[in-house]
Design a protein around this nucleic acid. Structure first.
Length: 498
RNA sequence: GCCCCCAUCGUCUAGUGGACUAGGACGCGGCCCUUUCAAGGCCAAAACAGGGGUUCGAAUCCCCUUGGGGGCACCA
């Protein structure tokens, strides 16, 4: 692909601080960040808080926390500063106001005094008389005389500033991954640039900030494509060099119907698929797995490799390989990817990552024990929060009732017998390793003429009270001889009492 | 409704006019392994939306249709 700009790469992620980070935003942020890192450019975080009505306390902190958790560090931003600050739009109001009025002076924008009612009426008339077309209905104050304008300003006081779009011809903007995008000017509206409260709209703020922050490439999702004509014309009106446009595909629901949305959470296998990055962290998805997975939503390296680390991803990333087509969120593949990463963790690392989940559920946890059990649960905890249920027997053991103790095709007497004989054999061991346990237990199974599932199932229920647990002998080894035998004995006693 | 974007297995995708009897991965199905649950191994099913062109030759280029997505605010 031909290089359209030789300016140093400076790209930004510009969220509106309304809550946690959306998984779709995370994907867009990731691709933007990869582009910056690959190009040795700058990745900038800018906060677009120009809607006072949507202000959410704490949202900024949550947002930054989520982005950092993913490992997408920014070079310039609200907390780290930088040469083009401030990086919060509400702190840049004067700039927007100055340039909005400059456009008015140049005759490229105008003050609009329309009330909501006037606008509604104009829209209605436009719809009726123009074959359903509503573009342009808002131009009621575009062509009035200077005298009228002065009069209205005196009478009404408040106004918005609208951009005067070209009325005929075409607007053509070039997108890096879509090529030329053509708009018929007669279809376009005069959008509001400066609201009556003096705050800019997104359209004005984004163009001014991107210009003054020297943004080289505007990366955002497809949702913004319809306003590309406006932004393109704004650059022209200001007489500024246009950045390169890069409109990325959106992330759709797992079923491909509609954007991922937390308001209508997608379902897979009857379960809700998390939409916010924060939910993935709390469920126990590894950030590196999320990054790996997200890289392949709407992007691919072109080979058959599925697992790659961040460093390789940065090195090999090529923005021209971003697909123009929207992509469904393949939740099952994310789960699989997460499993791959979990299995690659060392015992220590896995234990460390497990601690917060177990601590939350059971209070203080013994890390040394976790390290010991780690190899036996590695392929059984995906996401990590599943460890809470799987390891309950270690941290909050509650003996199981007799009916659970008694296995398929067995009765109380048989079960008691299994427990008793197992106890006797295991009690003789000085080495309680799982290998040695097997050497005494396998012959017992044969001697009893029972199935392994029956004998081991009985012991599993006795020692863990769980239908599902790590492998039995390994589990008893970690539990220790004393504790294991005590539980077996207690189970037998419980059965005797019945 | 109008405007914009998009179109290969169920899903993510490879593919940039001949190497395509279309490759990989997830998922699904089967078999194996197995003390539960996983993990793992092997095998299989599964797609170029349709129609016109262009070309010696089209999954690849063009047009139309259809389908999907996005947008139509003093929200971003």
């Amino acid at each position: 692909m031909l290089i359209l700009t030789d300016k140093p790469v400076r790209v930004r992620f510009a969220p509106s601080p309304t809550g946690y980070l959306h998984i779709g935003s995370a994907r867009t942020t990731l691709l933007t960040w990869l582009f910056a890192r690959h190009s040795n450019g700058k990745f900038i975080l800018r906060i677009e808080d120009t809607d006072q009505k949507r202000f959410v306390q704490d949202a900024l902190d949550k947002l930054m926390q989520d982005i950092r958790w993913l490992g997408l560090e920014w070079d310039e931003g609200p907390d780290v500063g930088g040469p083009y600050g401030p990086y919060i739009q509400s702190e840049r109001l004067e700039l927007y106001q100055k340039w909005a009025h400059w456009l008015v002076e140049q005759g490229k924008a105008y003050k609009c005094f329309a009330t909501e009612e006037e606008l509604a009426r104009a829209r209605e008339i436009s719809q009726k008389t123009r074959g359903g077309r509503i573009a342009g209905y808002e131009r009621i104050y575009r062509f009035i005389s200077d005298e009228e304008r002065a009069k209205l300003e005196k009478e009404r006081g408040s106004y918005v500033i609208r951009f005067a779009m070209p009325l005929e011809g075409e607007t053509v903007a070039h997108d890096r991954i879509r090529g030329d995008v053509v708009f018929k000017n007669e279809e376009l509206s005069d959008m509001v640039l400066l609201k009556s409260d003096g705050f800019p709209t997104y359209h004005l703020a984004v163009v001014i900030d991107d210009h003054f922050m020297q943004i080289s490439h505007v990366t955002r999702t497809e949702e913004w494509l319809p306003s590309l004509a406006l932004h393109h014309n704004l650059y022209e009106a200001f007489g500024w060099d246009e950045p390169e446009w890069v409109h990325m595909p959106v992330v759709l629901n797992p079923n491909g119907k509609g954007k991922m949305s937390k308001r209508n959470p997608p379902m897979v296998d009857g379960k809700i698929v998390p939409v916010m990055v924060n939910d993935y962290r709390e469920a126990g998805y590894l950030p590196e797995a999320l990054i790996n997975f997200l890289t392949n939503v709407g992007y691919s390296f072109g080979d058959d490799q599925e697992i790659f680390n961040v460093q390789d991803t940065i090195t090999r990333f090529d923005i021209d390989r971003v697909s123009p087509a929207s992509a469904a969120f393949n939740f099952q593949k994310l789960v699989w990817t997460n499993g791959v990463y979990i299995r690659e963790l060392t015992d220590e690392d896995l234990a460390d990552r497990l601690v917060p989940f177990l601590q939350k559920a059971y209070g203080n946890v013994d890390r040394a024990k976790l390290v010991k059990i780690a190899p036996h649960i590695r392929e059984r905890v995906n996401p990590l929060s599943e460890a809470v249920a799987l390891l309950k027997f270690m941290f909050n053991f509650e003996p199981c009732p007799n009916d659970k103790l008694i296995q398929k095709n067995m009765d109380a007497a048989g079960t008691r017998n299994v427990l008793h004989l197992s106890y006797e054999r295991l009690a003789t061991l000085t080495d309680f390793s799982h290998e040695v346990q097997a050497t005494v237990m396998e012959p017992l199974v044969e001697q009893l003429g029972l199935k392994k599932a029956q004998v081991y199932g009985t012991l599993r229920m006795a020692t863990t009270a769980q239908q599902v647990s790590p492998p039995l002998f390994e589990t008893m080894e970690v539990l220790g001889k004393d504790e294991s035998l005590a539980r077996i004995q207690a189970a037998e006693a419980q059965l005797n009492g019945a």
